[in-house]
Amino acid sequence: MLTINNINVNYGSIRAIKDVSFQVHQGEIVTLIGANGAGKTTILHTISGLLRAQSGEIIFKDQTVSSTEPHQLLKMGMAHVPEGRRVFSQMSVLENLELGAYTRKNKKEIEENISKVFERFPRLKERKKQLAGTLSGGEQQMLAMGRALMSKPKLLLLDEPSMGLAPILVKEIFNIIQEINQTGTTILLVEQNAHMALSIAHRAYVLETGKIVMEGKAESLLGNEQVKKAYLG
């Protein structure tokens, strides 16, 4: 579904990502774990086109998309839930969801999709007229995910969905991520909370200062001594 070949990304004169390669196959949950500043968010931004790689290529659904605009990638079936949710705080919950379906035309299908999102996140339904900026952190995360689902993505990029949430909410969010995956959406998950991420992912890559230093099945990484020491505490 997604193949990253030797990408290098610079931030000004600093090379933030060095020769990173990895794959995400159809139906998988793949997680990129690593400490703060390892380059996880930079990689996601490069995949969704908000940043450009200096070299290397990104292949999505058998097409090279290294220089494709973000709005075109969305049409191709890639949705990105950015770090810090980035909901439109001055707009209502409903308007946020409608914007998620911006590229879709069929009004009836959009309506159906909205009710599906409300089924998955009942709390959003209660607050649909409220401005998104007045929601709690957890509700904003649900809205950001619901909004991304409105485009019916084949591949969902999730950036730190657990950030700043209470442990019980983190569990809830991760259960939902698994459910989304079981309904056929492939997921690339970036997390600092390595334990949670590894417990739902199929495969994982460990990122350290812009390089991939380890990869493997999530279960085996969960038992790996080095990973335990560095990320699982």
């Binding site: 969704s48 086109g49 908000l50 605009e69 973000p70 709005h71 969305l74 049409k75 949705a79 990105h80 950015p82 980035r86 909901v87 439109f88 705080s89 001055q90 707009m91 914007l99 998620g100 911006y102 590229t103 909004r147 991304a148 485009s151």
Partner: peptide
């Protein structure tokens, strides 16, 4: 309105 609030997030919604 979306672009004026958050240009990157708007792009991620498929807005040109």
């Amino acid at each position: 309105r979306a672009v004026s609030e958050d240009e990157d997030a708007a792009q991620l919604m498929g807005i040109n």
